[in-house]
Simulated assay, not measured.
Amino acid sequence: MAAAGWAVGTGAVEIPERFDPWAPLDPKAPPDWLTGFKLARARAEPARCLAALERTGMQYDLLPDRETGPGCGFQNAVRLRSAGVRLNPAAPSLSCPMALSFFMWETHALQPAAEQRFGQPVVAVEHLGSYACRNINRGEGAPPDAGRSASTNPAPQASRSRHATANALDIAGLTLADGRRITVLQGWPREAVADTAAADNPTALLLRDAHRGACRFFDGVLGPDYNAVHRDHFHLETGGYTMCR
């Protein structure tokens, strides 16, 4: 083992990039057992993240770092102008880790699921927003402090949403190549025996696949089964607690 380590360390033996845990992340490469490690490493380092994002082929504008209020603002963020799919509304502001995770989810989870369930790709993704200086909406009947003035009525920073740092995106719907529109609100199975009810429903299966696939590429994923606040969208985030609900 020592000899092998020496050979690799000195370059005497070259390891293919896909088998080298220290090689840069290739976002377009089929996921393997090292993808999660490489993705986490890329997201943790701004320069490495931007280098990986450049390899995606997406079009984006770099955003200057901003602080918009207590616990609000973003660093190492981009305005996503063009992705593999059309985004509606267009040009969301996302942290580099979010933009990178979105590309990998769309490429390696969403599109394969759409081809499997419908035999065609997703051409557009509808979202409910990315960056917003607000607190977590806990579904307690009160608004998430979106309009609260940070200077006159500051909110506890501990309860800031990941949206407040451009580290979240809420996905509400999909449009297939034939024009068919699928929404989380109408397509997610609500029955108590949801998995059984969805067995022969390609719309429900696609949404289930999209939700499950997101858990591979984002740190946090919340869907309609989590609580009523998420009944109409998938909340995807990076940098927070690991969760898949």
Rank of each mutant, 00 (worst) to 15 (best):
G139A: 04
V8I: 13
A47E: 15
P70K: 02
R180Y: 13
A7V: 05
I171Q: 00
L100F: 01
T107R: 10
A90F: 11
I171A: 01
G173A: 15
L185N: 08
C133S: 07
A77S: 11
R180M: 13
Q120K: 08
W33M: 12
L206Q: 03
A142T: 13
P189G: 07
R148D: 09
V125K: 02
Y226G: 01
P30E: 09
A3C: 12
T68L: 14
P46W: 01
A177F: 08
R212H: 13
H235V: 02
L236F: 06
H163T: 02
L185S: 10
P224I: 05
D232N: 14
G57E: 06
A29N: 04
Q59S: 11
M98P: 09
G147T: 06
Y241E: 15
S149G: 12
D195G: 08
L236A: 04
P202W: 08
A23F: 12
D219N: 11
T183Q: 05
P154K: 07
A172S: 15
E191T: 10
D20L: 07
P121G: 07
G220M: 11
A158P: 01
A23V: 08
C133E: 00
P224W: 04
N227M: 06
Y60T: 00
A91L: 07
A3W: 13
F234L: 12
P92F: 02
M58G: 03
A146T: 12
V122N: 00
G11S: 07
D32F: 04
A99Q: 06
V221S: 03
E54W: 08
A7D: 08
A155G: 11
P27L: 08
G141S: 06
Q186S: 15
C72W: 00
Q111Y: 03
N227L: 06
R43G: 06
A124H: 04
V125Y: 00
L53S: 02
A99M: 07
R86G: 07
G129M: 05
M243E: 11
P31M: 00
N167R: 09
G213S: 05
N227F: 08
T238G: 04
A52Q: 04
T152H: 14
R134G: 01
A172F: 03
V221R: 02
A150E: 14
A194E: 09
Y241S: 14
L25I: 05
